[in-house]
């Protein structure tokens, strides 16, 4: 039994380890170890395409995680206080957002937005004052952030709601009995208690957005995110440079995840 467990852990971590190991390979060939070197990291970090893609990915991940955390938390707090059809509709929307395969979300966003943009662009051009180039709505970073935010919002609502449900109701009641305004209660009682969950939601959202390939593949327009760059490089062949990028991506995700995990655990203990 113990041996089996060890084998499964090896199965889970050997591939990651191999990538990391070969990223320090000095040789040109991806599959022969020839001494230790960090030159592939230097090469990756000096590659303007990689850095551009990294910048796009970081911006998209930050913006969509931020929007998702704020709007998701707002919705979760409001949903806590209501019942009836509105709540049922939101529950259904969250369920659909999480259940629908990412690829279908990507496709729907692509053709939905392109169709809407095709209708809106002539309209904007018509009302735009003469002499200036009218702005043109197109797929790009904006649509990517919007699509990620939609999905991640559902995720944040689920995480924050779980936290709210675990909260002792007596605390907020006590606060309002002591004449705190609803806003005061929220700021001084509710927010500090759900804050670890919000932060964890933010970090998970950031990781998800940063790692997402399939939605970005459809809605990124002419922008290139890091996963899109890596995907197209893999198609051209395996190189030590991709190993280095992969190792860095895994490293960043691991850091975020461990922080999120610690936050969720600490938050969980505090409320008990």
């Amino acid at each position: 039994m113990r041996l089996y467990t060890i084998c499964v852990y090896l199965f889970l971590y050997i591939p990651i380890g191999v990538i990391a190991l070969f990223s320090f390979n000095a040789g040109r060939h991806a599959s022969q170890l020839q001494g230790f070197s960090t030159k592939w990291y230097g090469k990756a970090l000096n590659n303007p395409f990689v850095m551009d893609a990294l910048e796009t990915s970081l911006m998209v991940a930050f913006a969509s995680a931020l929007c998702a955390s704020v709007f998701g938390t707002m919705a979760a707090v409001a949903l806590q206080g209501i019942k009836g059809p509105v709540r049922a509709v939101f529950d259904l929307l969250i369920y659909v957002a999480v259940m629908i395969p990412g690829i279908v979300i990507g496709i729907a966003t692509l053709i939905g937005l392109v169709t809407v943009f095709d209708q809106l662009n002539p309209l904007i051009a018509a009302i735009w004052p003469g002499g200036f180039e009218p702005p043109k709505l197109r797929m790009g970073m904006g649509s990517l952030i919007a699509a990620h935010t939609m999905f991640l919002m559902a995720l944040v609502v689920i995480i924050v709601r779980a936290r709210l449900a675990g909260m002792d109701r007596a605390l907020t009641e006590a606060s309002s009995d002591l004449y705190a305004t609803p806003m005061g209660t929220f700021r001084q009682v509710t927010l500090p208690m759900i804050f670890p969950a919000i932060l964890a939601g933010f970090l998970l959202s950031f990781t998800f957005s940063f790692d997402d390939f399939i939605i970005a593949f459809f809605v990124a327009g002419s922008e290139t995110t890091l996963p899109i760059y890596v995907f197209s490089s893999i198609r051209r062949g395996v190189t030590p440079e991709i190993n280095a990028i992969g190792t860095m991506v895994l490293g960043v995700s691991l850091l975020m995840l461990i922080t999120a995990q610690l936050l969720l655990q600490r938050g969980g203990k505090k409320s008990r």
Partner: peptide, 25 residues
């Protein structure tokens, strides 16, 4: 009204980025 205001951004977002696109498909 407060609950409505809190739900408005998420609701709008779901409408524009989920319901409309899925209906288009």
């Amino acid at each position: 009204t407060r609950n409505w205001l809190l739900l408005a951004p998420a609701g709008t977002w779901f409408l524009v980025m989920l319901i409309v696109p899925l209906s288009v498909v």
